[in-house]
Amino acid sequence: MPQFRFRSLMLVLLVTLLGLSLISLCFGEAPLSLGEVIAGLLGTGTDEQSLIVRQIRLPRVVLAWLVGFSLGASGAALQGLLRNPLAEPGLLGISASAGLGAVVALYFGLTAASLWALPGAAMTFALLATGVLYALTQAGSTNLTLILAGIALTSLAGALTSLALNLAPNPGGVQDMVLWLLGSIADRSFDDVRLCLPFVIAGLGLLLMTGPSLDVLALGEGEARTLGVDLGRLRGLVILGSALSVGATVAVSGTIGFVGLVVPHLLRRFVDYRPGRLLLPSALGGAVLILAADIAVRLLDTPRELMLGVVTALIGAPFFLVLVLRSRRDML
């Protein structure tokens, strides 16, 4: 029975994801019909149609998948590891740190040596941030200190990003700053997808390996260890996996917040609250949310296209507040 529920949940998420992907392919400046979109996708349409669908709209959809997978799975894994429903790459400053790494690589010419320097720097910074946070939780900190540390890391990374943009040899403008702090997947190409794909796959692989151990960790670290959970390995997998996947996607999309918070929270009840079981559905759910937000960004009739992070924050921030209030009640 639970197995059946799990499968139907995955099926629903997958169908939603594919449906939204198709919808996303149909929206754009050029008025293409569904038939033309499919023709463009399959390469049977005109050159113009296939250029628009394959090179402008498709990379955007694929990137939404990758960003969503990364944020959703990392959110679920971090929540499981830290045993805290408020953990999330965006809130904990992992995304912001990755953004700082990307900015440093981009604006100080590291990418001139190799384009891989971009995801490389982002992942390194993400790894540092995750390591610091983990060290903090090991020092016996509470939910509160963890969140506060995350806020500190986020604003520090944001400030350093602005500083870097100002000091860079080729000064970036306000718009660049907005991109790195709020995130967007508009106008991305398959070059960008290629740049983060290998790391997202590797990171997701590491994260998904942690499922059974995260389940056992619900018992607490002591009992989990006596059940054969290698805590050091588990921590390493979650930290490395989140840093790889989040770092690599932030390098091409900027920081997009709250996805890793909202998605696991919404899906948890459908997997009987098992933290390990939550990983895969969360990854799919993350992609669904990013795609939906990205469609909303294009549908909303604003003078200029909204940043993706604005929409996810509009959805996520109220969520966060409710969660904080609720967890406060539980803890008191």
Binding site: I56, L106, Y107, T111, A112, L115, N170, D176, S184, S189
Partner: peptide, 16 residues
Amino acid sequence: DRSGPGAASAYGRHPL
């Protein structure tokens, strides 16, 4: 000219 090697903006870098 100002955007440097890895023009921060995806639009400016887009292969299209």
